[in-house]
Structure formats: C-alpha cells, structure tokens
Design a protein around this nucleic acid. Structure first.
Lengths: 193, 193
DNA sequence: GACATCATGGACCGATCGTTCCAAATATGA
DNA sequence: TCATATTTGGAACGATCGGTCCATGATGTC
C-alpha cells in the first residue's frame, strides 16, 4: 500500500482508453476498468472523481493524440499533405491489437447516453479534426492550389467523412485495398485546378 | 388483462426501435423498452424471448425498411438514381422527431457489445446496403454509363461511406446545405465518361 | 353458464451497477 | 522515532440490471 502514488498516469489512462474504445461508455463497467487499469476503486475515484470524469479525461487524451498525429503530417503540396493524412489513419496490421474504429465516432454515436461533459469533449474533438482539414484547405486556396470558389466548409465535411469512413468501414468488412481505393475516390473531390 | 393479444405488433416494434435507435443496445434497459412499448415484461418476454431477441427483430426490421427505401428510388440514369438515393437519406426537418444517425452504423460501432445474433444482423444490413450500390454500379457498367475499369467494389464502399456520412455527420454539427455539398463532392468520384 | 386457455400486471430473483467508506499500510517531515 | 498525510485494498451501500414466476381475469368453446 501507499503514501505515494503507485501507478503511472499515462499507462492507466491507456488501459482505460482500451476499454472505453472497445466497449463504449455505457457498456464499460467500473470493474472492467479497474481490472484493466490495475488499480482499486478507491484510487480510481480519488484520481478521476467518477466514471464520467475518467471517461472525459480518456476521450480528451484520445482526441489530443489524434489531432497531434494529424498535424504532424507533411506534404509537398496541400493536396499531397491531405492525401498522406488520410493514409496515416488507414488501419494496418501492426495496430491490429487496437480496438476497431474511431473512438470519437463511437462517442458521437452514443452521444445521447454520454454525460454532458463527455458530449462536449466528443463534439470538440470532431470539430478540431474538421478545423485541421479547413486549415489545410485554406492554405491551398491561399497558394493557388485550390480555386477560392471550391467551398472550404463543404470540402472539410467531405474529408472528415472520408476519414471516418476509412476508420469505421473495416468493421463492415472493407479490406485494406478497398480502403485505399476509398481514399483515392475521396480525393477526386479535390478539383483539378 | 387478456386471453387475446392486446398490442399491435408493428407499433410495439416501432416503439422499441425508437429506444434502441436512440440509446443503442447496451444502454437501453428493459424497463425503458416496456414503458415505451406500453406492455408488461411478461408480454415482452413471451413474444420476443429476451432482450436480445427483441433487439434482433427490431434491427432486422430497421434494415429491411432501409433497404426497401433504397430500392424504391428511380432515376433516368444510374448516376442520377444513385444521386437521388443519397438525397433520399438526407435528414430533413419533417423527420426531426426520429433519433439521430443510422441505427445500422450505431450497431456497427457497438458491435463488440452486441449478442452474436445481433452482430450478424447488423453486418448483414450493411452488406445489403452495399449490395444495392454494387447493383446500381454494375448496371451502369452494363449500359455504358461507367467504364468497366471503374472498380465497382471500391465505388460501392465509397458510396456506402457517403451514405453513412450524411446520416451521421449532423450529430457533429453539419447543416443541411453542407450535407448536400457532401453528396455533390461524393458524386465527383463517378468518372466523367 | 362452466371450463380450459392464455395474455397480462406486478411482485420477486440473484447479479451487477456506480459509488462510498474505512481500516491497513506506507512515505514524508520533524 | 514519532506524528501526520495520503494511497491502498476490500467490504459494503442502495439502485438498477435482465429475467422468472404466478395469481388474475378476459376470451373462445361447448
């Protein structure tokens, strides 16, 4: 026992993320969570206040990481940057151990059952993803890659849809080859000068 | 009380559909369901065996209706038919009372928490949606609207993605105008002869 | 009008839910 | 070394979970 905290903050959040990601908010029990995180109920409630608090922290950590990964992608042109970004989120075998799908999309689907603060975090995460697309598109307009009449907002929603599609369609049986094709087809929305 | 069944089969399924659609499988309690359906636990369990059985029947009814709606769409060309199909599933204000999003996508998201038979129903529903897209695309190839090298499988996944996007993105804040733009952009994957 | 049938309402079951509480154990500061 | 602070494991809480059971009373048949 104790006197000094005996668990690593990041690793317990990762463990909780795995559970919430796999089973969603409602279907994840505190027992499952404590077992996966390797700590007792007392420690969980002392550190995270309650199940809602843990979920909120886990989801915002998830969103933070996704946004960071998205921002890290480079490219010679804005178009190639955006294409590379989509490829970055193709599920690959190395990440097969991870839960399926996108946790933000899952949370968005079960929005009605989420605590209010969790709803806000989920919505904010998707909004930030879309903001990244908007930013890339805005830069593309600025440097002449994209006609200013292209309609950035619509395109941003479109590419957010493609991103969600490639992360979630595998659960419906889509193969890696088919997903890459989905990206190609999605990119055809980018007007050819 | 009774001797003869006192509830209408279709309307109790509709009521259950509203609950499951809104809250998903795990977060829908039998109490919520019986209240919404207006019948007692005894009647529910006698008719549907258990919660799983009710869910399976509700979800397959939902999938059946979606498929029927998709098949009912006509068009002068396969392209216009497909475009009209997507517009058919744009959320409009008249249907605002309905739960948000697509029940099949929701079920697909919480696949891991579904009873096995429910998983199969959800998967089958999405497969049938995709089969409809494939059918339209195959006809388009047959009558020369689409080059045979277009790659029907990839296109079918793409349009399934667009369909899911326009049904689910509203929860992330997309407006009707933006969704119509998403359809236009999605249609740009259809090669121009 | 008596009887068998069967859906209904509601009490009830053990299990599990999220949460609280406390005694035991350790680290820290003097 | 002693007092204090703080985290830990685990017992326990009331509420709710999915599911069962039975007395009740309406129905259809003779």
């Amino acid at each position: 026992m104790s006197g000094k905290r005996q668990f690593d903050e990041t690793s317990v959040i990762n463990a909780a993320m795995d559970v919430f990601w796999r089973h969603g908010y409602a279907a994840s029990s505190v027992d499952q969570l404590t077992t996966a995180m390797g700590l007792s109920r007392s420690s969980l409630y002392k550190r995270f206040r309650d199940k809602d608090g843990l979920f909120r922290e886990v989801l915002s950590t998830y969103a933070e990481r996704v946004v960071r990964r998205m921002r890290a992608i480079q490219g010679d042109t804005r178009r190639s940057q955006l294409e590379a970004l989509l490829h970055e989120f193709l599920p690959n075998d190395a990440k097969a151990a991870r839960p399926k799908g996108c946790m933000l999309a899952r949370s968005c689907a079960e929005m009605a059952d989420l605590p209010l603060e969790g709803q806000a975090v989920a919505l904010e995460g998707l909004t930030r993803q879309r903001a990244i697309f908007r930013e890339i598109l805005r830069e593309a307009v600025a440097n002449g890659e994209l006609p200013s009449a292209a309609g950035i907002d619509g395109l941003a929603w479109h590419f957010l849809g493609v991103l969600q599609a490639i992360m979630n369609l595998p659960q419906a049986g889509a193969s890696g080859r088919e997903l890459r094709r989905v990206i190609d087809l999605g990119m055809s929305a980018w007007p050819l000068k």
